[in-house]
């Protein structure tokens, strides 16, 4: 195995509007690893992603989440971001009137400031942005446009990976970044993710489909079903899922309950 545990989730139970969505998740992710969390709609994948990034609408019923040994559930979303947790949104938000470039400059400088690094000025940031934009073949005109405003679905997803490249997180959670992409866009996104694999960085790929994993090879694949991780394994598990569908897992879960 790789380095020390970067993220440790212990028996995490989460409720929203009175309904339990996560029913006891335990997961350890080490620096340098890529984990894929797969599961059918409604299994709790996005909830897990949002809870890790600090969305406040969820109620933590039980359990803990340690990031670098610290209790992350006490931290505000911005504090998590500044400490290196990044969530690529399934549905990136449009912010009209605010240029992508300036928004990201503020984000990068907020992170740099909290790490004790000097803030980048406009010229330095522009140079960095241009370089990182190439990773995901993001057209430079999109830097000047308002954040996600009028972006196509593929452009929004690429913009998320571009943000990740700029913010250089230690823990990146990608929530269905592959969904809805055509094969060319998927390849570009995957190429960006691969370029950002690093021994100090852990990546969690949340996905509904196995397709992305043709391009990004995970170290571990987990199957999330009805708020629980019901199966973990190597990349071959993803292929098995692709072949047999989630029904196979469902039968297994129900079967195990019966026995």
């Amino acid at each position: 195995m790789n380095g020390a545990a970067l993220l440790e989730i212990r028996n995490l139970r989460v409720r929203v509007e009175g309904q339990e969505i996560l029913k006891g998740i335990t997961l350890t992710v080490r620096a340098g690893e890529v984990h894929s969390i797969m599961g059918p709609n409604g299994s709790g994948k996005s909830t897990l992603a949002q809870v890790l990034a600090g969305r406040e609408v969820y109620e933590i019923v039980e359990g803990e989440v340690l990031y670098d040994g610290e209790d992350v559930l006490r931290m505000s979303p911005e504090e998590r971001a500044r400490r290196g947790i990044f969530l690529a949104f399934q549905y990136p938000v449009e912010i009209p009137g605010v240029s992508n470039l300036y928004f990201l400059k503020a984000a990068v400088n907020a992170v740099r400031k909290s790490r004790g690094l000097p803030e980048l000025d406009a010229m330095e940031f522009l140079a960095l942005a241009r370089e990182r934009a190439k990773l995901v073949e993001l057209d430079e005109s999109l830097l000047q446009r308002a954040v996600n405003d009028g972006f196509s679905g593929g452009e929004k997803k690429r913009n998320e990976i571009f943000q990740m490249a700029l913010l250089e997180p230690r823990l990146a959670i990608l929530d269905e970044t592959d969904s809805g992409l055509d094969i060319d866009a998927l390849r570009i996104v995957a190429q960006g993710i691969n370029a950002l694999r690093h021994p100090d960085r852990a990546i969690i790929l949340i996905t509904h489909y196995q397709r992305l994993l043709n391009y990004v090879t995970p170290d571990v694949v987990h199957v999330l079903y009805d708020g629980r991780i019901v199966k973990s394994g190597g990349k071959e598990l993803a292929l098995e899922l692709e072949e047999k569908g989630y029904g196979w897992i469902a039968e297994g879960v129900i079967g195990s309950v019966r026995t």
Binding site: P77, R82, P92, V93, I95, A107, V108, A110
Partner: peptide
């Protein structure tokens, strides 16, 4: 949208 901005490091 607020959460999106905060998740990028901007304070509330």
């Amino acid at each position: 949208a607020l959460f999106y901005c905060r998740s990028r490091g901007l304070d509330a």
